[in-house]
Every structure is written in C-alpha cells, then in structure tokens.
Amino acid sequence: MQEFHYKVHWRARGQRQGFHAATTQGSGMEFVGHAPLSGYSDPRRIDIRASLASPTGDWLVRLHRTRAALPVCVLLDLSASMGFAGVRRKFDVVEAFVAAAGFSARRTGDAFGLIAADDTIREQVWLPVTHARSAVQTALTRLEGVTPSGGSAGLLEALHWLPRTRSLVFLVSDFHFPLDMLSSLLDGLAHHEVVPIVVWDGAEAERLPGFGLIELADPETGRHRTVLMRAGLRRRWIERVAQRRADLCKCFATHRTRPFFVDGAFEADALTRYFLGDDEHAR
C-alpha cells in the first residue's frame, strides 16, 4: 500500500494529539510564551531563568503548543465519466488513491473520511471522518461494486457533509464539468484545504487513434458524436485537452490551490513531492 506524506500550512484545531501544528496548548516542542504559575499550575514547567528575570517576581511557567490530528477527507466525484476506462480504468486509480490516502492518514494519526457524489451525495459510500483503524478497509469495501453514473452536481452539496473543522480535502475528480461549477465548488470548500486530484487518462488526450471513424458516446449525457479521426483533428483534440488543463490550473490558482494531475497510475511519491512544494504535477 502506497503512502504519501502531507502537511498543511495552518494550525489544526483538533483536540486529539497528532502530527500537525495546532492552535491547542499543551505538551509540545513549540514554545509560545510564559504565563504565571497561578494561572497554569504546572510546576514541572517552571522556567527559573524567566522567573528570576520577571519584574513582577511571579513564578513563570513555560507555555507550549501541542501537535494535533487533522481530519483528512476524500471528496470523490462518482459521475459517469469517472467510469471511463482508457489506458487504465480511472476507477482503479481512484481506488488506489483512496487506499493510499486512508493509509497515509492512519499512519499520520489523522482521521479519515470519504464522501462521494454524482448527481447527489452517494450516501451508501459515505464514510464519516473517523480515527478507526479500519477506516481504509471500510472505505474500499464501500467503493466495491460502485458504478459511476450521472453528473457531478452532487459535489456542490458535499460541503455540508464535510467536518466542520478545517480539514484537508482531497477533491478527486476528472473535473469534466464547466469551470463555473468548479469555481463555485471551490468557493464552497474555501474553509478547507483543498487538494484537487485530477484523474485523467492517457486515452482521453494523448493516446488518440490516428485515423478512423468513431462513434463517441458521453456516458453522462448519453449524447453521441460521430468523429472522423484524422491527423488535423487529432492535433486539435490534443491542443484542446492541453487548453483545458491550462484553464483548470488557472481556475485553481485563483482559488489559491494547486492541482495534482494523475495522468496514468497514481504515484504516492509524486503526491509527497507535491506537498513539498514541487510543482511538477501542476503543469
């Protein structure tokens, strides 16, 4: 099972001890300041040097911030397009990611939850945020036998299902919906740290057939299109996909987030590098 490392740039508000910097005071390495012993009666933390220097002559106690756990949530788009199978099935990639996310959250000591949506929230797939060690298995079991269908409108409701506390939200989708909708979705999720995981397949873009007649069907709308594939159209197609990628990046940037593109198999290390600030997957 793959594991990736993640971190956030804000302080977690969780009460539970964890890995992330938090606003909670307690046992920890991070020094905050001094307080009179009368208020914080923990004699183990008496800072003698500071007390001696104290003009008031009070005994001062060192205050530290503790490290807290953080809710990690996967918000999964289960619209029909996510059922696309090209070079590999998108859903396999999704499952691999959910497994990795859940596993990583457990290893980091964070709570893990799963929310899936197509036209509405898929309640039977919903896994409320939990610290249970079995969360990964539960999530994967619930994804078993699920067939992506319908559109992506349900994602907009998802914010009501997310934890109230600020969480790390992996928004897993192919983002095959209008930019307006993406914009409002990101607005809705502004309270959380959103990491867009863009699941695309090589067959959607680069690996197009060179020539032939194709009757395309859109699984979400049921629409058909006949395409006479040829060199010119193929080039325009690839350009259009690249343009879409650029548009998505721009839209994410305005919402102060960077997308993580999965064009083939999911690689946990690449995601770790993403959290380290490496931009290779955003382009």
Binding site: G83, F84, A85, G86, V87, R88, R89, F91, G145, V146, T147, A203
Partner: peptide
C-alpha cells in the same frame, strides 16, 4: 468503453 480492459470493469 474504450480500452483494453473494457470488458471487465469494476
């Protein structure tokens, strides 16, 4: 579906 594994998805 497109692709090689089309037959046995999910």
């Amino acid at each position: 579906s497109l692709g090689r594994q089309a037959g046995k998805r999910f």
